[in-house]
Design a protein around this nucleic acid. Structure first.
Lengths: 197, 197, 197, 197
DNA sequence: CCCTAAACGAGACGGTACGTCCGGTCTTGAC
DNA sequence: GTCAAGACCGGACGTACCGTCTCGTTTAGGG
């Protein structure tokens, strides 16, 4: 019926798949999302263009996949739990601030955000595969704090996470203010005060 | 000698300028940022491509300008001040939530965000011309609340705004949760609790 | 040593061979030489591409072979010999004209010619396998006429054949004039006058 | 309505047109018709592909045009007329044989023939622009011979030309025999005998 | 009669060129 | 001198085939 003949994944070349994802990652880092072309990815990967079009529906999907592949090996992340939620949150938030400030993450991270803004499907994948697992780990730590009576028992943990991370995310995305350790601390203060028992 | 001859703005055709911005706005609404082309804008506006390249440096600049033009007429915004900061914030936040949920804003607003993520210059312009004035108005209302003893006197008002708006913004951008009046209220609660005197 | 392992013709699948040649013939008739692809031949024949590349060196060779196969069964052609060379030649030339004018021969015959123009090897094969035997039969009849004193004894029979057929061939190839029975007769007249004893 | 927007020939770049035709001629000589690509022509000519697709419908048309351009300047050809038709024909036919035997003409001439075989439109153009004028000149000389009583008065001059040239053409195209001065002479003999008064 | 090597159908692969689209520059003629 | 129009060079797009290269699956002949 349709002209869309579907390829047989069993015969897919693992070598090509990895080469494409690696090339995509490199090119995004070097040029930024907008300037990466499928032709360049194919050339860098030593792969025919058709091999890319056979397995991915769009440039965005390739590049997104290259991000997914990065965190493929990472097993269940586990956040520090010293029993002191304030100290632990400061540690984690300061680390997050440092990560956002790292120029090496800048370009690919902006590329990732550019994509999920305009593509609901990719946004869903992002939540499911990248943000989700991390959020689960964070909420696990928060639940532990709730049990320890350091956080209000009826606090909406999704909301807590948003209050902690969304301001940081927005500052980074809009470049609307400095990303300093003090800022990380300030966000922790806000959250703990708002959700204190 | 150089080819960079700068045009004389005094002779600029107002008719063309408006037609270009209107065409840009329409096309972004219809197609989304990525699918809009300069050729299409020129064709729809009944304008030569050169006329666009003469006055704008890039597609992004044209489209961004078309947003700026929208709020050109708006004089200094003034937020409600009934004396009750909680009630006023709920009003404003519920209105903001409603705006974000309006499908008519969806496409152009995502277009705008796509641009400022990748272009620091546009991001600066955005803060200066669009976000800035609105933030000033909001902070004015918060200062009034500080004077009334409803907010901690030493509260960092930029941070207050971020705690109020960034979670909402992030939910919308990532489609990571529902945008409801209850959510608006919850954010107001969080902010007021965190910055209560 | 080399990677060019030569296949064993004894194990060749007769079924595949016939299917390929039939598919080639059909496709040339339907699309013309230029638009036929090896992939299409393989698909139509229900054969893997490698099976074609294993037994033929090029698309041209396959298609040429599909012509050869047509005349495979034809045993030694024998032209009419009533004793009257003029009458016999008219008969044969009129038949040839009719054949050239038949639309069913048009496409494949032009395909055949396209190939032998650019490929000396195929041209040689053509002369040896297709044109040659027919020319021998024609020359046999001419020799009979020589013995009967109807043609100059020292006439170069290859030249006689060319004078008879080349104008017809050229008209057909270049579509430079009508192919009518009268034209056939005119060519016979010319040849007989030129090579009369 | 249609997507076929027609370009304005008045604005056509003469520089580009000439560069394309020159590049086409060179590439055909170097590679032969089949191996020439539009991309290669564009690259060699320093021209965008679209500029070719804008003005020519196909590769064949470009290459054919490059042949036409060669004979653009040539004014009315005039054949020798010493009063002796046999001597004049020998001169012309021997020259033609020499031309066909010249390797420099081989490749482009075969390219030209490949094209007109499969494309009736190009064949028509060929007859009108290239073969036609030359044939007119030849027939002029033959008419002169008729007036001088050296050729039968009622001879069909198109047929005379065919008897002279088609055998030569066919031998060259099929590589079916030697192209020698003697062969040229033989053809002249045949024609004169066939059409003698 | 089974074993095994080759030929087979299928189709993924690295490539080349296709014909189209658009970016950004340049040219023309109207105003 | 700006404008609408649009031709230009360049280059990426997504598609179609090329000829090569695995994959299992027949298949046929020699042991």
């Amino acid at each position: 019926m349709s002209s869309t003949r579907k390829p047989n994944p069993a015969r897919r070349s693992e070598r090509s798949r990895k080469a494409v994802l690696a090339a995509a990652r490199e090119l995004v880092s070097e040029l930024g999302y907008a300037k990466v072309t499928i032709e360049a990815i194919a050339a860098r990967a030593g792969v025919g263009k058709q091999t890319i079009y056979r397995w991915w529906p769009s440039k965005g999907a390739v590049i997104f996949d290259s991000f997914l592949a990065l965190s493929e090996g990472e097993e269940g992340v586990r956040l520090p739990d010293t029993g002191d939620i304030e100290a632990d949150l400061r540690t984690v938030m300061r680390a997050t601030v440092a990560e956002f400030a790292d120029p090496a993450f800048e370009t690919p991270l902006r590329a990732l955000n550019t994509q999920i803004i305009d593509d609901p499907d990719l946004a869903g994948l992002y939540r499911e595969k990248l943000a989700g697992p991390l959020d689960q780990a964070k909420k696990e730590r928060l639940r532990s704090a709730q049990r320890a009576g350091q956080l209000r028992a009826d606090a909406d943990l999704d909301l807590v996470l948003e209050v902690l991370y969304a301001p940081l995310y927005q500052r980074w995305l809009h470049r609307s203010g400095p990303l300093s350790p003090e800022y990380a601390d300030a966000l922790v203060d806000v959250a703990l005060r708002a959700f204190a028992p």
